[in-house]
Amino acid sequence: MAGTKTGAAKASAEDTPIGPTGRPYQGFPTPPKLEGHGPARIIALCNQKGGVGKTTTTINLAAALAGYDRKVLAVDFDPQGALSAGLGIQPHDIPTVYDLLVDGKRDPHDAVVRSHVPNLDVIPANIDLSAAEVQLVNEVARETILSRVLRKLAPEYDVILIDCQPSLGLLTVNALTASHGVLIPLECEFFALRGVALLIETIDKVRDRLNPSIELDGLLATMYDPRTLHSREVLERVVEAFGDDVLETVIGRTVKFPDASVSGVPITEFAPEHAAAQAYLRLARELVARGAVA
């Protein structure tokens, strides 16, 4: 009997598919509904390189978590305002995150906009935010201004996602100082890999000087194309360098993302059966399973 069990276990192990990261592909369970909401865990989506999928990931991860009955606040912290536009919000003539940064007495609820996605709210941004770094440079404790804003909103949400701009300036430091965790979207391309060490170094400095509780929630491989040797080699090197910090979920490259952005809806609504939508639902389940989200 013992030999039979061993043989069955071996066969089962051999039958388990291997994911793109080279590890057995797990099926993360559907998160149970929460009995109550809050306080939020704050996660910054950060990478100083542009075009790696930060905004796409913020939008679709937020929508996926909202679909699993989590109350989500997405903070557009990029002057380009791509997150706002990607959720169909026009950030003109309305309060934005810039107003909250420069006016410490303003109620943060003034800038919260309900999206068309149930359970998902947004604090929008526009080009005004580009002036914030200059205006805040002489402020006392300027690195903690966003933290003070989000502290007033955290009790009402389960997770707050901050879409950072592609730089390591004062705005990004504010986001890291306000956050409990960092999620790093990483394009499967050689030059994207080069900058990760600098970003990790910045996170370590923030941990040492400003926010000792910040954690690395993971690196998310994006724009992965299994047909190219380059994508596969870059992902292999990322796993070699960062091990279990690399999330098992991998986001593939597809034209569905820009199509969804033009429509102003998450891909989980635009093409819910598409592999990319399923990947973001899986990412949400993985982050819950890893304890990064309640």
Rank of each mutant, 00 (worst) to 15 (best):
I267Y: 00
E139W: 12
A131M: 10
L150Q: 00
Y68I: 01
S213Y: 02
R253D: 07
I43Y: 01
P31N: 09
T30V: 15
L235Y: 08
G27E: 14
G252S: 12
K54W: 01
A125V: 00
D245G: 00
A40Y: 03
E35I: 09
L186K: 06
C188G: 08
L183V: 01
R106N: 02
L199M: 07
L183I: 09
L216M: 14
D244N: 13
K205E: 15
A40M: 03
A44S: 15
D208I: 07
N60I: 09
V159R: 06
L146D: 06
K49Q: 05
R285V: 05
R142H: 12
R151D: 14
R23H: 09
V117N: 08
E248V: 00
R106A: 10
V265P: 01
R148S: 10
G38I: 05
V122D: 03
L65C: 03
F191W: 10
G36Y: 11
I145K: 10
P185S: 05
G88C: 02
A13F: 01
T96P: 04
I89T: 11
I203T: 07
F28L: 09
P32K: 14
Y280R: 02
T21S: 07
V102F: 06
D208L: 14
D158G: 00
D107T: 09
L83K: 02
G81S: 09
T21C: 08
L73M: 04
T4E: 15
D121H: 15
I160N: 05
G36L: 03
P31E: 10
E273N: 12
R282H: 12
A66P: 07
P124F: 07
C164K: 05
A13Q: 14
R290F: 05
N47L: 09
D225G: 04
L235E: 06
I127N: 06
A64L: 07
H230R: 11
P95C: 02
T21K: 04
Q278A: 13
L220K: 03
I203Q: 04
K71P: 08
P32M: 11
P185G: 08
H92Q: 13
I59Q: 05
G243A: 10
I267W: 00
V113E: 11
C46Y: 11
V250K: 03
P155Q: 02
T254R: 12
T172K: 01
V239P: 03
K71D: 08
A44E: 09
D259M: 14
I145N: 08
I43H: 08
G264Y: 11
I145S: 01
Q48Y: 01
D128Y: 06
L283N: 05
L34P: 01
Q278G: 11
R70H: 14
I123V: 13
R207W: 00
L83R: 04
L199W: 04
A66L: 01
G243Q: 10
I251D: 06
V137M: 13
H230E: 13
G195V: 08
V238I: 15
R194Q: 15
P118K: 15
V159E: 00
L183T: 08
D78N: 13
V149R: 04
F242I: 03
Q165N: 12
P20H: 06
P17S: 11
V206E: 03
E236S: 15
V137W: 02
L199R: 01
S84N: 03
A294C: 10
